[in-house]
Simulated assay, not measured.
Amino acid sequence: MTQTLQPAAPLSQDRTAPKPRRNFGAWFKDKGWRHLVGVAIGAFALLPLAYVLSAALNPSGTLVSTNGLFSTLSFGNFQDLFADPQKPFAKWFVNTLVIGLVTSAGTVFLGALAAYSFSRMRFRGRRMGLLTLMLLQMFPQMLGVVAIFLLLSGISDVVPWLGLGSQIGLIMVYLGGALGVNTYLMYGFFNTIPTSLDEAARIDGASHIQIFFTIILRLVTPILAIVGLLSFITATGEFLIASIVLNDPDTQTLAVGLYSFVGDNQSRTWGVFSAGAVLAALPVMALFLFLQRYITSGLIAGSVKG
Rank of each mutant, 00 (worst) to 15 (best):
Y259R: 08
L136Y: 02
F139E: 07
L53V: 15
N191D: 13
T214A: 12
N58G: 06
L63H: 00
G42E: 00
I215K: 03
G276M: 04
K91F: 09
A201M: 14
Q141L: 12
D264Y: 05
G144F: 13
D250P: 05
V102N: 00
F290Y: 13
K305N: 11
S60L: 15
R15F: 07
G176F: 04
N58Q: 05
V304A: 12
Q292E: 09
V262C: 04
P222G: 04
I300C: 02
A45P: 00
V102E: 00
I193M: 11
V158M: 05
S104Y: 03
S65G: 14
F190I: 09
N182D: 06
I233L: 13
V181I: 12
G76L: 06
W27Q: 08
G188F: 08
D204V: 04
S65N: 10
L229Q: 01
G228C: 02
V108T: 02
G165F: 05
T96M: 10
G177F: 10
A43W: 12
Q79W: 04
I209L: 14
A50G: 08
A56I: 03
F190Q: 03
G302W: 01
D30G: 07
A281N: 14
S54W: 08
T236Y: 07
A286T: 10
T2E: 15
F82R: 03
L150F: 07
L46Q: 04
F44G: 11
P194E: 14
T66G: 07
K19T: 11
N23G: 15
G169K: 10
G169M: 07
V181N: 00
P249F: 02
S60C: 13
R126W: 04
S267M: 11
T234I: 06
S303M: 13
P194R: 00
V284P: 01
R126M: 09
T4L: 14
G129W: 06
G176Y: 02
F261H: 09
A178V: 02
S71E: 15
V256M: 05
G129Y: 06
R21S: 12
A225I: 01
L229K: 08
P20F: 01
A50S: 04
G176W: 00
S166P: 06
I168T: 15
F273L: 09
K87V: 12
A115M: 05
G180W: 05
G76P: 07
G169V: 07
L69V: 07
L46F: 14
L185A: 02
A301V: 11
L289S: 05
S207P: 08
P18Y: 00
Q266S: 10
Q292F: 02
T96E: 08
G163D: 09
Y184S: 01
F273D: 01
L57G: 03
S65L: 11
V227A: 01
F118M: 13
